[in-house]
Design a protein around this nucleic acid. Sequence first.
DNA 1: GTCTATAATAGGATAGAC
DNA 2: GTCTATCCTATTATAGAC
Lengths: 187, 187
Amino acid sequence: MRPSRNSRQEILSKLSEVFRRDGYTGASLADLAGAVGLGKASLYQKFPQGKVQIGAEVLAETGRIFETEVLAPLREPGTPEARFSKMLGAARKFYEDGKLSCVLDTLSLGEAGQFYREALSEAITHWQEALTTLGREAGLSHAKATVWAEEVVITVEGSLVLARAANDPEIFRRALKRLGNRFANSQ
Amino acid sequence: MRPSRNSRQEILSKLSEVFRRDGYTGASLADLAGAVGLGKASLYQKFPQGKVQIGAEVLAETGRIFETEVLAPLREPGTPEARFSKMLGAARKFYEDGKLSCVLDTLSLGEAGQFYREALSEAITHWQEALTTLGREAGLSHAKATVWAEEVVITVEGSLVLARAANDPEIFRRALKRLGNRFANSQ
DNA sequence: GTCTATAATAGGATAGAC
DNA sequence: GTCTATCCTATTATAGAC
């Protein structure tokens, strides 16, 4: 069923954006509350354990969205090339054309890294495994598929960092385009 | 001449470490002061404009160190392959084998990104240009050298993010090793 | 130059009214 | 459920002693 206007999912989506722009420490409760249009006290009604809980649920929900919107296409029918291309398109949307950072980056700095270590590791593993499977289906050896998968994730994360630091989202889009072209040409 | 025991360079180096672990917002003045073994008030003696100034000077000094320790080898005598290999070794040391993040990442989040936008952009450009020059000397066309340079920087930044998020510095070391091998094999 | 002490403000969190 | 009001702590920043 369709979530109501301010379902928990919608709230977490808005909270996620704040963390992805400002990082864990940089996102104050006032910022977070403001992003969902509530007072701070109302946030505590929904997240009694406060900021740590908000981060944890944001991570979990972001992982679910990433799974259904970005990784699922890797497993749908079609040639490996087409499926990878779909994933890249979905990633481009997920990261808003390079204008929005990744929680793997913004929620792994400093104290947050300690809170969320397990969730972060699992998210990376999950992403890499989905890519490795595709690589194998495209004819790569296990070793080559593993390396390729790691490099794809590295490229997405690295290009997002550069796009943010240089204030040039085009860096991200270029990098994704190259990933797609190279995979197509290797087929 | 050799800097005295607590020269500004040494102080900035210690301050830099805090920013690279905890990010701009995550680094409190108490943390920063503690890292150099001083009280907060003493930090304000050295940096009257406070945290923003500290970040700016850390960025500038980190850029100088990166230039002399990591980029300089690219321009020294030797084959392109040897010079690139030296840069990778220096980068490995600079990032402490993947255990220390890059200021391009940790000082570009949230408000810090606005403060330091120019310095961050310039640092990226500088790094890429040094690599592009090397690529050209290795026989690449301008277009290919530019792409290759961008990909090297992306790989370093991305593998650092993953290493931190997964708490596995080996990701960074593997990525650097692949960069070296691939360049050698293309010669 | 460095310290203690102290503002002044922001941030995380809770109580209780509506 | 959401708000105002409040508390407590942390944080930035400064004053003034040594």
